[in-house]
Design a protein around this nucleic acid. Structure first.
Lengths: 140, 140
DNA sequence: CTGAACAGGACCAATGTAGTCCGCTATTTC
DNA sequence: GAAATAGCGGACTACATTGGTCCTGTTCAG
């Protein structure tokens, strides 16, 4: 799996915040409860996103978290990178001297290409493309 | 990291076998030593590839492993899938009833797209595109 | 000042990855 | 048909990462 549970939690929390950002700060407890995410764990994730400037955190009563960016301005790629770090596809485990391709390692190129493609797809979507829907659809 | 050390070992071993497949079976020990891969571990990987039909294994003296396919006929995608299983990009950790997108989850589409792109790149390369070079380049 | 709410460090459990060990089985060669 | 050779395969271990908890501290509105 490329993306972790942490990423999933983070993404959903951001979607939730995007939907409410007009209504002032949302508390950790509310997000955790609504999205069924362990509170203490979500806390870490939001702390991390706060440090990167994606959300802003307000302490004290009537505090909470607010989205600090325009939903349409932040791409999935940025979000995922900020939560999980850059998506590394492949690590070469041969040392230079025992590398069977040493000199012109085509593998490097292939996996670089893979990374580029992943980045391209993720950069095409922003937070604004995903809508938090509070309840289940009317019924299918 | 998407691809594991196991994948790296497996790929290199296959490259080695591709280069020697005219010269009969190559023993586990030889591959392990030349490529600096722990023997017992490589054994597992080759066993796995043997079950999938990518290599053939011969027991007894003068036995070993032979590549069972045409290098140009087997894509990186097939090899990687056989070693590590299919590359899953994302697992949705929300249950249906607490999914904030339930109904038409765009996320699924995005990550499906990512998987497709990865597959496309990997399917463009075959074992024949990579050459095992026994020694270091003449010097740069 | 008090209680709501986030910050952050320490800690813990489960999982997956990487790797080892060893007895078993098959095959070849003499 | 015995050795010797080589892969098979199950059980086991070590380590890192992930997912998650807990507790103490800090900030701030009312």
């Amino acid at each position: 799996m490329i993306f972790s549970r942490k990423t999933d939690y983070g993404l959903r929390a951001l979607m939730y915040l995007a939907e409410r950002r007009a209504r002032g700060p949302v508390t950790l407890s509310e997000i955790a409860e609504k999205l069924m995410i362990p509170k203490a764990f979500l806390s870490k994730i939001l702390q991390q996103l706060a440090k990167k400037g994606v959300v802003r955190s307000l302490k004290g009563p009537s505090g909470g978290f607010v989205l600090a960016v325009e939903p349409a301005e932040v791409t999935l790629q940025e979000i995922l990178t900020e939560i999980d770090g850059p998506t590394r596809v492949f690590e070469c485990f041969a040392t230079e001297s025992d590398c069977t391709l040493y000199g012109d390692c085509l593998m490097r190129d292939v996996f670089g290409e893979v990374e580029d493609q992943i980045g391209k797809v993720l950069a095409r979507y922003t937070l604004a493309d995903f809508r938090y829907t509070d309840k289940l659809p009317a019924k299918a």
